[in-house]
Amino acid sequence: MTAERWLNALVLPALGLVALAAHLGDAPFTVTLATRAAIFALAAVGLNVALGMGGLVSLGHAAFFGLGGYAMGILAWHAQTYQPLQIGPLAIAGTTSMPVVWLVAIAASALAAVPIGLLALRTAGVYFIMITLAFGQMFYFFAISWPAYGGEDGLSIYVRNGFPGLNTLVPIQFFGLVFGLLCGACALAAFLRRSPFGLALNAARQSPERVRAAGIEPDRLRLAAFVVSAAITGLAGALFADLNRFVSPAMFSWQLSGEIMVFVILGGVGRLMGPVLGAALFVAMEHVLGGISPYWHVFLGLVLLAVVLFARGGIAALLTGRAHG
């Protein structure tokens, strides 16, 4: 096996083992940290489909993260206040069932990604970044000024949503759910990358003329990648809301879009396990360095600088000694 394969095979089990060891060692806070890392990793796996394979530098993925969060928040709020959600003539009961919330989060993010992608893909480079950023900010300010669901204060959900057969309030059980979804998303990303679709998407990033000459429209591939990417990040948003039992407009903020991108770049753009490594390192630094100094972002900045200057392929490249995935 090549170093890259070892890495791909070992990173997820390592994360699972950390959580399991913490659980057995009676350190629920560490389990929660691992859960936070896994959720961020999931969001970054989503972004990596667009950024790593498609070359789409989206600075608006917080829009989908937030949509997933508010899908959870709104459904749970209606459930806990026993008010049906009115959409026109339709009255929908709220729900505290995780599988339903997940599906709604995925569908909402994917649906939102279609018009955003259609518009943003008419541009490239800096303009693509700016348009996705603008969409993210639209959602942010909309959430702030919409009083029905807490506006600027956000929404508190008192009880974590349930999953059939599990007690999601037990940290290790909730971690198990998140971890399962992360593994699923990584499997999907690995599958996409090996499929003819992934092959063409990868080539379209490097040489769009070649792909057109082969009878494939690059923008269709990119739109599909953008939608899949948004759906995964939206799911992560729903889980993040469940982890904190709180949603606020901050989930839509451009800083969050930037952080998701930092996870990907830290770990390795386009690497299967890059997002997981990046998110895990970020959460570890946030916890360890954040305990030392509230200005820990300075150190994060230094690490990011070092990665960009000396290890283009991120931690994944450092660990495998290869610049290309």
């Binding site: 092959l199 063409a200 082969a214």
Partner: peptide, 15 residues
């Protein structure tokens, strides 16, 4: 993979 691209295009870039 580069050679494959034409075949993928002719067959439709599926999953």
């Amino acid at each position: 993979e580069n050679a494959l691209l034409g075949a993928v295009g002719a067959a439709g870039a599926g999953f």
